[in-house]
Design a protein around this nucleic acid. Structure first.
Lengths: 214, 214, 214, 214
DNA sequence: CATGAATGAGGTTTCATTCAT
DNA sequence: TATGAATGAAACCTCATTCAT
């Protein structure tokens, strides 16, 4: 962890066995993170959980941090992928439609494997993790920002700030849910409220607009 | 060195010095956290920064974890104190007043020393830190929940969920600001937007109500 | 060994206990080197031999290589010290006197603890050890070079080359003796021969010279 | 891939290829030694440099140490071969002729590939390498010793010691040259001086002798 | 009480060697 | 035979914690 920061996997896994091993290692990392926490995330434990030897970890990852980076990248890239997809799909739709779609998508993707989301939220921040978060958050915000500017029935000043607050406002509540502070059975109501939160906000900070007729 | 021949001090000087030392150590912990990050938070570094010996840390704290606990408790308790105070002050006021006051107070207290807030957000979560966060979040939510039920012009169903989402929705954006993702110079506009976010939400999920007529 | 090359001891040992510990560690390093060889020179073994814990080694040496560097520096600096001293003492003397004195001094200092000399000759060369050898060899050669130019009864062209070959010619035979290839009981005869070797050479490559009268 | 259908090769091609592979591996070992040093001499690096797989190394060498042994043996055996040859050729010649021939031969063979000589000088000594050095040095010394006893114009007491010092005195200066401490451009002058060194010595420790008269 | 030297468990990482394909 | 993925023993190094001074 740290000092010599190297980010690339040592060997690009070309063979089938290699790919499987990498997969197994990454999943084991997540499982250790979920069940024991970052404090107990050691190479030995990951290897044991993965059913491989420590050496195999180092065949594919230059150091322990690289494992975390890989896991985090995967998860957050997936989130950004989903957000980008929904943004693409919502181009030119109404404010209400956009608010609902983005909010639902975000909740859904984070609740797909809530323990994973939770474990990754709990990671200690450092320069590397921060930069990954910044990169993927950037992707989402860019997509959302572009989407908002295509909104059929609203125009936004302060587009950057609005996007930040919009996305930011989803994070906190979702964090409360993945950590169990809000009971998971209430996802439906929760999502409904969150949608109202975002739509309410977007309405407040936009000027209504009718594209064609008026 | 010399025999301790000191009588009748107002406060036991020992104790006064102790308190000062504890203070120095805690502040050093925060500084190391801010400047080097949790990865580099070692007892030796804290001692050096504090200008005391490692041994002295163990005079006042049973172990390293206790340092973090103390720092986190202090910070979050302070936040909860501020929230409780504002809740007390806002009893019976209007929804708009409450939304504005709570939001502003939260932003203000987190932005008092943004680097500290940032450093503490970045702490790895484990059972201990989670329980501290839960406890202090609980305090705030309880106060807010009670406050909302005194609101002069609105009534809330789902009070628990509303409180959770209300407070949760503040956390994300504030995190973006303390991490610098939203420029700090824009606190004013930011607070304004955040207020609109919360008030907008609270309106959506409440039923209007006029205390007088009925 | 290698990569992060750091050369300074972490802590300058000020207290008596510290100095003693450093001494014990250095001597243990030499002993392990002598009895087991560089292949088996591990921090654990040094610590065990020194009767301290591994941690104590790292209190005073940033890494394993630093241990070797310290030991090598000490030994070679001592050799250079001795050579410099004898050179000082021989200023202006005759070629025969100089040849005898320098040769004897070199043999004597290397044979003081032949096992140590042997162990250090056997160290794998790398950039760091090479630079230490270069530095201390440089000291000796500079001193000898200056000395030769004060010789009462001879003048040298090619002073640099002569100095190199003169000193170089001592190294090989001495190495044979410290490694046991030449029996140690024969030091006397050995030194005598070596003296003849050097004096013979110096005569061949110098022009006789009488300082005053002629 | 395709079935091996190859019949009646002159030499078993397998064997021919084997020999080539061994050669490639040994040369790769030398190259890694020269360019990276013993610290970085790993089987993986040798394999990469040789353009074969790690497994192939183990096809031909039982372990890593065997690689080094093979390389060292080859080099030092070649040196001994050359010395033996020159000794054979010089039988019965004069002291001057012998001194010149042996010295020149030694310098020449070590300077054939100075980087190789240098790299091998830098090997850490252990029982195995020491025994190889001892064996090959022994061969040279035996040859030289026999040669000296055939010298046309000189007789030596202490033949063993003289041989040791004679050969030993060549090693040091040559080491200075292969390491670059003496500039390589000066080989000519260097060899001349070294010859004077050895001849001078041999004269000093011998009694002149004229084969004819008695 | 304060100090900081000493400890050693535990984590990270390397790499010679094996073996299924 | 050749390959290179997998192994795991063993080395390095850190740092929370203790304790003699």
């Amino acid at each position: 962890m740290s000092k010599k920061v190297q980010r690339n996997p040592r060997k690009s896994p070309t063979q089938a066995r290699s790919i499987a091993t990498v997969e197994v290692i990454l999943e084991a990392t997540i499982q250790v993170l979920i069940t024991q926490g970052i404090t107990y995330l050691t190479c030995a434990r990951v290897a044991e959980r993965a059913g491989v030897s420590v050496g195999s970890i180092y065949q594919y990852f230059p150091n322990k941090q690289a494992l975390l980076i890989a896991v985090l990248n995967r998860h957050l890239d997936h989130v950004a992928d989903v957000i980008e997809a929904v943004c693409e799909e919502q181009r030119g739709k109404s404010l209400d439609s956009i608010g609902l779609a983005v909010t639902s998508a975000f909740v859904a993707v984070k609740m797909l494997r809530p323990e994973v989301s939770r474990a990754l939220y709990g990671l200690p921040s450092d320069e590397v993790t921060d930069s990954i978060v910044a990169r993927t958050t950037g992707r989402s915000q860019l997509a959302i920002s572009k989407l908002l500017s295509t909104c059929a029935d609203a125009r936004f000043n302060e587009l950057g700030l609005v996007t930040s607050i919009f996305t930011g406002s989803l994070i906190g509540p979702v964090q409360l849910m993945v950590t169990g502070a809000i009971p998971i059975e209430r996802v439906e109501t929760f999502t409904h409220h969150l949608t109202q939160l975002s739509i309410g906000y977007l309405r407040q900070v936009s000027t209504p607009y009718s594209s064609g007729t008026e």
